[in-house]
Design a protein around this nucleic acid. Structure first.
Length: 228
DNA sequence: TCATTAAATTGTT
DNA sequence: AACAATTTAATGA
């Protein structure tokens, strides 16, 4: 069922930002990027700790969230295989402004801060990619401001899933995603029971197909616009 | 390959 | 939150 595990080098080459890099540039990046495994429930990076790397998800699913002083948790987004996060932190700050937690066993690629900045200074294509990625995330968060307060659980689940199929953030992801209803609950801030109901509503609407341990998106545009 | 068992996930209250 | 039903994964014959 699962694809054979991706080698770090293959993962880097399949990232869109790497598509137009020269061979020697790519070789240097490959030699400097590290790989690390994070068990399910483990912390990829913790709020307040130094930002030493830009992080790519090779395999698994990572939740980006923040916990308030009273212990209330807010999830910003999920990052699935193929996605990179932390560019804002690497660019502007020295400490992470949020937590990144592995929802299941993960393998992540770590690009050292220095490598990131070197790419930033040498590659126009890399800059173009960052501009697009930051823009995609901005519109994602703007949409969340609306959906978080105004929309019912069905729409929140719909948008949460749609965001995981964003072709700019997760290239080559296909239409299928292995994700449990519990994981969707963590990402969308909806109880698992409500996720279960919502998935059936969305399935009835023909927007997606639910399967054991995963979903298949049938109509991505409609999914992202559900409820508005 | 098949049957049995444990674990994970889903569906319902 | 708790429970039963279903699906998958693992194990050994």
């Amino acid at each position: 069922m699962n694809a054979p595990s991706t080698l770090p080098a293959d993962f880097l080459r399949s990232s869109i930002w790497a598509a137009n890099l020269g061979a020697d540039t790519l070789a240097r990046v490959e030699s400097e990027v590290l790989e690390r495994s994070v068990p399910g429930g483990g912390v990829v990076c913790r709020k307040g700790s130094p930002v030493d790397y830009w992080v790519g998800v090779i395999e698994g699913l990572v939740k980006i969230s923040s916990v308030s002083a009273e212990g209330k948790s807010v999830t910003f987004t999920g990052v699935r295989a193929g996605g990179w996060f932390g560019e804002g932190s690497v660019l502007r700050t020295t400490a992470w402004g949020y937590d990144a937690v592995a929802l299941r066993d993960c393998r992540v690629a770590l690009m050292p801060r220095a490598t990131f900045h070197w790419l930033l200074e040498t590659s126009i294509e890399f800059n173009r990619f960052l501009l697009e990625q930051l823009n995609e995330r901005l519109s994602l968060f703007i949409g969340m401001l609306e959906s978080d307060r105004l929309l019912e659980p069905e729409a929140r689940v719909a948008r949460c899933l749609a965001s995981l199929f964003n072709p700019h953030l997760y290239p080559g992801g296909g239409r299928d995603l292995q994700i449990s209803q519990e994981e969707i609950g963590y990402l969308s801030g909806v109880s698992r029971q409500r996720v279960n109901q919502a998935l059936h509503v969305l399935g009835q609407a023909g927007l997606l197909r639910v399967a054991y341990g995963g979903v298949t998106v049938l109509d991505l545009p409609a999914l992202g616009a559900f409820g508005s």
